[in-house]
Design a protein around this nucleic acid. Structure first.
Ligand SMILES: [Mn+2]
Ligand SMILES: [Mn+2]
Ligand SMILES: [Mn+2]
Ligand SMILES: [Mn+2]
Lengths: 223, 223
DNA sequence: ATTAGAATTTTGAGTAGTCAAAATCACCGC
DNA sequence: GCGGTGATTTTGACTACTCAAAATTCTAAT
């Protein structure tokens, strides 16, 4: 039985939630899952029990949920479609990187195997989407690249923005306006715990100071 | 309340069914509707009563159903999305004209206003889809072009194939193989009631004979 | 050890869409 | 006018998904 849009969204949310998790357990609490899906807690519990029935997740009552091998593969394929579609909308249809997420959220559930492979081909088998998120392979494998955030990278050292871990449209437009899109080169000038801020130097020597919460969402690589 | 995929499919099926109808009533029988949606007769009845509640159709028990103004506009917009998507898949993604229908059937329900307008623009505001079906306007207006079929057009006269009224993949591949796609020029050599057949002369003087049922699905225009 | 508070699960109910089969209706031929 | 036939509607039931609110369980602080 092929998974419904709802099931695909649950699997994807668990996948994403788990990837944020530290610790070997990788158990995502139901509350977090419900929150990320915008659903009542009881709803998530019910659904997760059904997913466990069909072998897509392991469920530990009162502790949380974890994807099985099959579930993980399925989730990665949804993510693959989502990210290929986002890139396609930007690259081929000229949409902005801050407006493609919602369309991709729907399209990821209906594009056929054939269609997504055509898209992949037209794009030349890309490795990352417009936000720098890695595109899982046809087989459901994701290459997890270790990246610093602006909170952990070395100071006074040129780094390249590689990835943005927040899809909020206003945030993305802010980044674009200040040349902080993936691919851009910047330097962290200073971090200050007290003022909760990080100061950056951009390409043409513009300076900008952002909050630490925002800084944590920009992932970079030392060049 | 925005219409579900199911509602959109019902409206589209009624729209298409009605367009086949002769007579001023334009009342589509429930049996026909149920058949075209692949649904049990009782299911169609229930759904149509709900559609009537929300003012999208007029329902005459035991007689049939007819779209209201609002329903008709909505149906035309679904059709607009369907046909733009089909053309896009062929033109931009290089898919074959016999394999785009199923994808379009799903995509028509999830593409956003913004996305479909981008697609329309990239395609240069086309008037017909790969099968020659007219693309309704943004406002939900369809230009009904009067066309002959191969059963009614004059004999021994060059005509241009304009439209194919059957999405069956095998049939479409057959047409392609024999240069009978929209745009091609042909002539009807003969019709024979007894053998239920129509004989055609193609571009490079190839001849081919097809059944009347098939011939009725090819719409042409005298040049 | 108790216990308050938070997280989670359970319960009861509701919506959207579907089917099979029984009941009903419309119409045509006689 | 009377039946019979086929189309249509009604009925009762089921699946998938959801919520609000009550009940339960876990945990961490006293
Ligand atoms: Mn989604
Ligand atoms: Mn993305
Ligand atoms: Mn459809
Ligand atoms: Mn078409």
């Amino acid at each position: 039985m092929l998974p419904s849009s709802t099931v695909e969204n649950y699997l994807k949310a668990i996948f994403l939630g788990q990837s944020q998790l530290t610790g070997a357990q990788r158990l995502l609490p139901m509350g977090q899952l419900a929150l990320s899906l915008g659903v009542a807690p009881g709803t998530a519990t019910t659904m997760v029990k059904a997913l466990a029935e069909s072998g897509l997740v392991e469920y530990e009552p009162y502790n949380g949920v974890r994807l099985s091998g099959a579930g993980s593969r399925l989730a990665a394929l949804v993510l693959r479609r989502h990210r290929l579609i986002e890139l396609f909308l930007v690259q081929v249809l000229g949409m902005r990187w801050d407006e493609v997420h919602d369309d991709a959220e729907q399209l990821e559930h209906v594009v056929s195997e054939r269609l997504i492979e055509r898209i992949d081909e037209v794009l030349g088998h890309p490795e990352v989407d417009p936000h720098g998120d890695p595109i899982p392979s046809r087989e459901g494998e994701v290459v997890w690249r270790a990246l610093d955030s602006l909170l952990t990278c070395p100071l006074h050292t040129p780094v390249t923005v590689m990835r943005v871990t927040d899809q909020d449209a206003a945030f993305l437009r802010f980044l674009e306006k200040h040349d902080l899109k993936p691919g851009q080169s910047i330097e962290v000038e200073a971090r200050d715990e007290v003022s909760d801020s990080v100061s950056l130097k951009g390409k043409t020597d513009q300076r900008i100071t952002i909050g630490m919460r925002a800084a944590s969402k920009l992932l970079v690589e030392v060049r």
